[in-house]
Write a protein that binds this DNA or RNA. Structure first.
Length: 875
RNA sequence: AGGCGGAUAGCUCAGUGGGAGAGCGCCACGCUUACACCGUGGAUGUCGCAGGUUCAAGCCCUGUUCCGCCUACCA
């Protein structure tokens, strides 16, 4: 017999090792079976498992296990992402502790050092995923910097370049002065920050007056090359074309007219610093203005800043403001709340910076990505995200893919030092194809990490090689990821997949929500509200933890996590475990190989209910309604199987006289339990695998997922069971309301038109309502006196209290019932009295309403009679 | 500024046109031989607000308030 309680810590370890040993996670490259594939959103190598990973991977494992059991050739591709800036930062911090920096080490040695770090710590999150039970195809594990994936990156770059979709140019980009690299637009996080709006006087060069401009960044004025006003602004039409003297710099700059300027804001005149503001940069292109870089890549003022050269940008702001004030140029200072962009990796304020960078031309790629979703080649679930997806792609800007860091895929571009020829190649060139020179210099920059991630759905299966795996598993079937990387990753995979593979990277995309704490706050270390998934697994077991995540994943809703809930589902695991113990205890003498079939009501009923549950859970999983799937199986196991079925069959199991029926019920019990273990397996892989050993040989994870059978529904059995359940409920209600102990046996009379059903079910009522005697009488029989009474749709129930009836509490109980039913009657009669309702509502609805009305009226009459009798009894 | 989502029992949330639900918590009674990590019974809601459509609205439409998120170049 199994132990009294399930010990997840031991079982999880053993079972996972068995699955690995038996190689059950591995999918064949080619197979007769229908392929089903998912690529994991590769966690950063620097990552530690957090709630987001836990949710993400639980959902993937759930679907993967469901598909595997359903007979598909199921491949879940695992791996990690090299996470350029994040990883470089981690290693640089390590160096810092040793009093070194990366420049001292030099590029090669630094990269070597990162690889060492990766070897040591990079696998941690993979092991953490295993703790969850993830059934990834570990043999296939990939890393975005692997040789194969690096080759894919070069191939993609070269193709894009040759097709004119990659270009290099001097543009203003988001620059992090601390990471010392360019960032894409997506890597900047804007935060509302209190600042000031400084109003500054710019005198006209001809001495005829002045124009006032407003700015949030006075230090940038050192690099101003114009002042702009709106061409329709009458206040300024006369001054357009004039020159002003740039204060502190003493340089003449023009006043220009441009639609971009909003006349309503500030003074309606804006200073233009093309090197320090993207809008100003665009304006400089339109008006051919000079670009003066006064802020350098390290955030200090350049030599162009004259007297301020060398100052930090914030220090310079103070100096400039002080000088403007001293020289009478400062008109006023207003407090001003504005959005300031920060580096998403280190929170340093981003500096718009003009530099030479590489870009991917997005428009043609975006068009393909839009069309694929419009045509339905890829479905986005929940569909509300489609709008966001389209909106972003329709307004997309070119993607800055170069990063001035060392950890990443170095851009495969070389320059011939002799003839300046640019060479773009997948393999390192040994000499210049134009002049034969062997002195070539490779581009220093590396690619944005997301460039390689964008290739993940096909680079992982071997692209650009035409491998069997690629043929079998591309397009992948499903991607499950958080909505927060819809742009970063999903959209870019769509573009790259369509462009390089000629087909979408996945058929379905399921976007799940964020995991928050129970107050709905985002979990963060600084808030101290993080719940560590590994800690939860240690405390409650992976099964309970997983089930919690699934049960709270409703489409379009955040997942609010709390320890209390996980504990609740641990109780559920315990319930299952004990139901299994009960089952096993009662199957000890059972020989499973004979063919039994039972027609007892509980057996027919549970077959029907189980069948419907299979259907419900299957349909919910197929449409990604995770909470419904979890809820359906929870309800069945706890409230149908345990609460009713196991109780109902006890008498049959304990009765050794009727061996045939006992055997048949044992068989049904065994089948039912095995089936729910299979149904539950994708949700709770460990406890189900553990229990499976007690029921069958082999592994549940590769057994067949239950299939529902449309003809197995037994409406008759369900209807009869409902009659019995209602009567049992009525008796229990009397017991509970009258304060009679559950151990006290009752004598009950049931008066009904369904004499046959209740006579057959008498023993069940006796057992579940704890009665010593149940008498079933036809509806023509006289009603017994001195009883507490209850009424159901199909029966009147009389509970004998042996003259000890507590009249006061019985009256309260009956009056409560009367009030409830009266309300029902009123609602129903009102509807039926409404001619519009009777005419316009569907016949079925009207009929239902009439039936409800009739039933309620009968119940009410009975209850009123009972109340009357009660009065007679008491007087 | 625009877009999206949410507002239903004390808490967390299901419920997309016909009798307001679940889990947890709460109250009462019970250690009945699978389970006290349990069982049985009970209490609890102007379904954010205001209009409208409909025989019928938590659900559809319009407006509105509050909360959250995303996108955006207003200095």
């Amino acid at each position: 017999m199994i132990e009294k309680a399930f010990d997840p810590a031991i079982a999880e370890k053993e079972i996972y090792a068995e699955w690995l040993r038996e190689n059950l996670f591995h999918a064949a490259d080619t197979s007769e079976k229908q392929p089903f594939s998912i690529v994991i959103p590769p966690p950063n190598v620097t990552g530690m498992l957090h709630m987001g990973h836990a949710l993400n991977n639980t959902l993937q494992d759930l679907i993967i296990r469901f598909r595997r059991m359903s007979g598909d050739n199921t491949m879940w591709m695992p791996g990690t992402d090299h996470a350029g800036i994040a990883t470089q930062n981690v290693v640089e911090k390590e160096l810092e502790k040793e009093g070194k920096n990366r420049e001292q080490l030099g590029r090669e040695e630094f990269v070597e050092r990162v690889w060492q770090w990766k070897g040591k710590y990079g696998g941690l999150i993979i092991n953490q995923l295993k703790r969850l039970g993830s059934s990834c195809d570990w043999e296939r594990e990939r890393f975005t910097m692997d040789a194969g994936l690096s080759r894919a990156v070069r191939e993609a770059f070269v193709r894009l370049y040759n097709d004119g979709l990659i270009y290099q140019g001097d543009y203003i980009v988001n620059w992090c002065p601390r990471c010392h690299t360019a960032l894409s637009d997506l890597e900047v996080e804007y935060k509302e920050t209190p600042g000031n709006l400084w109003h500054i006087r710019y005198p006209f060069a001809d001495g005829s007056g002045e124009i006032i401009v407003a700015t949030t960044r006075p230090e940038t004025m050192l690099g101003d090359t114009a002042v702009a006003v709106n061409p329709t602004d009458a206040r300024y039409s006369a001054v357009v074309g004039k020159k002003v003297i740039l204060p502190l710099v003493n340089k003449e700059i023009p006043i220009i007219a441009d639609d971009y300027v909003s006349p309503e804001f500030g003074s309606g005149a804006v200073k233009i610093t093309p090197a320090s503001d993207p809008n100003d940069f665009a304006m400089a292109e339109r008006h051919h203005l000079e670009i003066v870089k006064v802020i350098g890549g390290d955030g200090t003022i350049t030599a162009q800043g004259g007297a301020y050269a060398g100052q930090d940008r914030y220090q310079c702001r103070k100096s400039v403001v002080a000088d403007l004030e001293a020289q009478g140029y400062l008109v006023k200072v207003e407090p001003y709340l504005h959005k300031v962009g920060g580096c998403s990796r280190c929170v340093t304020e981003v500096e718009p910076f003009v530099s030479r960078q590489w870009f991917v031309k997005m428009e043609p790629l975006a068009k393909m990505a839009i069309a694929a979703v419009v045509k339905g080649n890829t479905r986005i679930i929940p569909s509300m995200w489609e709008a966001t997806y389209f909106d972003w792609l329709n307004n997309i800007r070119d993607w800055c893919i170069s990063r001035q860091i060392w950890w990443g895929h170095r851009i495969p571009v070389w320059r011939c030092l002799n003839c300046e020829k640019i060479i773009v190649a997948t393999d390192d060139p040994s000499c210049c194809p134009q002049c034969g020179e062997s002195n070539l210099r490779q581009e220093e920059d590396v690619l944005d990490t997301w460039f390689s991630s964008a290739l993940w759905p096909f680079s992982t299966t071997g692209w650009p090689e035409k491998t069997e795996a690629l043929k079998t598993f591309y397009p992948t079937s499903l991607l499950i990821t958080g909505f927060d990387i819809l742009f970063f990753w999903v959209a870019r995979m769509m573009m790259m997949g369509l462009y390089l593979m000629g087909d979408v990277p996945f058929r379905d995309v399921y976007l799940h929500a964020l995991v928050r704490d129970e107050q709905g706050e985002k979990m963060s270390k600084s808030k101290g509200n993080v719940i560590d998934p590994l800690n939860m697994i240690d405390k409650y077991g992976a099964d309970a933890f997983r089930f919690t995540l699934v049960a709270f994943t409703a489409q379009g809703r955040d997942v609010r996590m709390s320890e209390e809930r996980i504990q609740g589902y641990k109780f559920f695991v315990n319930k299952i475990w004990n139901a299994a113990r009960f089952t096993l205890i009662n199957l000890e003498d059972f020989i499973p190989d004979s063919d039994y079939s039972s027609n007892s009501l509980p057996d027919r009923w549970i077959r029907s209910r189980l069948n419907k549950t299979i259907q419900e859970v299957t349909e919910a999983l197929e449409s990604y309604r995770f909470n419904d799937a979890a809820g359906g199986i929870y309800h069945f196991i706890w409230h149908e199987l345990c609460d009713w079925y196991l109780e109902l069959i006890k008498q049959t199991l304990y009765n050794k006289e009727d061996l045939a029926q006992r055997r048949a019920t044992q068989a049904q019990l065994r089948t039912t339990f095995k089936t729910i273990l299979q149904l539950l397996h994708p949700f709770m892989p460990f406890v189900t695998e553990r229990l499976w050993k007690e029921f069958a040989s082999g592994y549940i994870m590769v057994s067949d997922f239950p299939r529902h059978d449309p003809v197995a529904n037994d409406a008759q059995a369900e209807a009869e069971m409902t009659m019995l359940q209602d009567v049992i409920g009525a008796i229990r209600n009397v017991r509970g309301e009258m304060g009679i102990a559950t151990t006290k046996k009752l004598a009950v009379t049931v008066i009904t038109e369904e004499v046959a059903v209740f006579t057959a079910g008498k023993a069940y009522i006796e057992a579940l309502a704890n009665c010593q005697q149940v008498v079933i009488l036809d509806h023509t029989a006289p009603e017994p006196k001195g009883c507490a009474t209850g009424v159901t749709v199909k029966a009147k129930v009389f509970v004998e209290l042996g003259g000890m009836i507590d009249i006061a509490s019985e009256r309260v109980r009956l009056e409560k019932e009367v009030a409830k039913i009266s309300k029902e009657i009123e609602a129903a009669s009102q509807k039926l009295a409404n001619e519009d309702f009777v005419q316009k509502a569907s016949a079925a609805v009207v009929q239902k309403e009439e039936m409800r009305f009739q039933e309620a009226k009968e119940k009410l009459a009975f209850l009123q009679k009972a109340l009357m009798r009660l009065k007679e009894f008491s007087s």
